[in-house]
Simulated scan of single mutants.
Amino acid sequence: MKNMTARNHCTVTEFFLAGLSEKPELQMPLFLLFIGIYVVTVAGNLGMITLIVLSSHLHNPMYYFLSSLSFIDFCQSTVVIPKMLVSLLTETNLISYPACMTQLYFFISFGIAECYTLAVMAYDRYVAICNPLLYSVTMTYQIYSSLILGVFIFAVFCASVHTGFMMRIQFCKLDVINHYFCDLLPLLKLAYSNTYANELLILFFGTLNICVPLLTIITSYIFIIASILLINSTEGRSKAFGTCSSHILAVVVFFGSLAFMYLQPSSVNSMDQGKISSVFYTIVVPMLNPLIYCLRNKDVTVALKKIRKKFM
């Protein structure tokens, strides 16, 4: 009876976002910190995409995947950070129901796309190091463009399912989302109707979208490490490890924070801990990825120097 009443009479038009901190004295320092991070993120990721487009010797699958990752990181940070910056400057941090669902949709889309892009990049490194003679045959334009397209199609599908089921949930009052953006778990805590199907979806897709990419990455690197150890020269081994180290670092930070947020039992999961974990994969990782790949990749560094000399 309660659910029927909720279904007929509940029409929530907006939510409050709790934000990262409720302490007024922290609002301005946090605003300055995150606007600085956002500027670095936008400059780094758009700069990486531009560099790959302008540098002809970076026109290969590895860097096309990297440009796709940079695009995802730019979009992911843009979905989350601007609204958070507005929230830090305003006392009444409201978000409308349609805006909340839109933010949730794009956040899930780009988050899942990043998971599978990192997995595809690991597979690309596996082919390049373990089967270098077959690389040009295996990674043709049709194959790597299909992989990138497949990643985005699957991400959009998962986001559509999650958001569709979330829109079936009833919210019966202007309530506070204990987060700095609209995410699945904080929204479900405010639900008035049954959320069992949503929780099953989160568990299923969460496990699938973390475990499948991780298994792909781990399997690829087992073969990669085995191949690298067979290389006789120390210089050859260090060069091979160098092409993978930045990717491994990005994987550890991203998947570690994701697993901490979504693969804990609800009895253990704390939303305050979840906020800190979310900061890593929504804000810190998009900023770090271009810096990691730029500083730890000789090809990118050389291309950057050439472009700089050209424009100077």
Results as ranks from 00 to 15, higher is better:
Phe16Glu: 06
Val253Glu: 09
Ser146Thr: 09
Tyr196Trp: 11
Ser87Arg: 04
Val251Asn: 02
Pro286Gln: 05
Ile248Glu: 00
Ile143Trp: 09
Thr117Val: 10
Gly274Ile: 00
Pro24Ile: 00
Met4Asn: 13
Pro290Leu: 11
Val268Lys: 11
Gly206Asp: 10
Phe16Trp: 10
Val42Gln: 08
Pro132Cys: 13
Thr138His: 06
Leu134Ser: 08
Asp124Cys: 15
Ala191Val: 05
Phe34Tyr: 15
Lys275Ser: 00
Gly111Thr: 12
Tyr262Ala: 06
Leu17Met: 12
Ile283His: 03
Val42Cys: 05
Phe110His: 10
Leu230Cys: 08
Val137Leu: 02
Tyr281Lys: 01
Phe311Met: 14
Ala122Asp: 03
Lys305Trp: 12
Ile108Lys: 00
Pro265Lys: 05
Phe255Ser: 03
Leu66Tyr: 07
Cys10Glu: 06
Arg7Glu: 14
Leu88His: 03
Asn8Gln: 15
Asn198Ile: 06
Lys309Gln: 14
Asn297Asp: 14
Thr90Val: 12
Leu185Trp: 09
Leu54Pro: 01
Ile222Leu: 14
Ile169Met: 09
Leu134Cys: 07
Tyr281Phe: 15
Gly44His: 05
Gly36Glu: 10
Arg296Trp: 14
Ala155Ser: 15
Leu58Trp: 09
Thr301Leu: 15
Val137Cys: 06
Ser257Cys: 14
Leu184Tyr: 08
Ile169Gly: 06
Val12Leu: 11
Ile307Gly: 04
Val302Ile: 15
Val253Thr: 08
Gly36Phe: 11
Tyr105Glu: 00
Val212Met: 07
Lys310Glu: 15
Leu33Cys: 15
Leu174Ile: 10
Gly36Met: 05
Pro265Glu: 07
Ile283Ser: 04
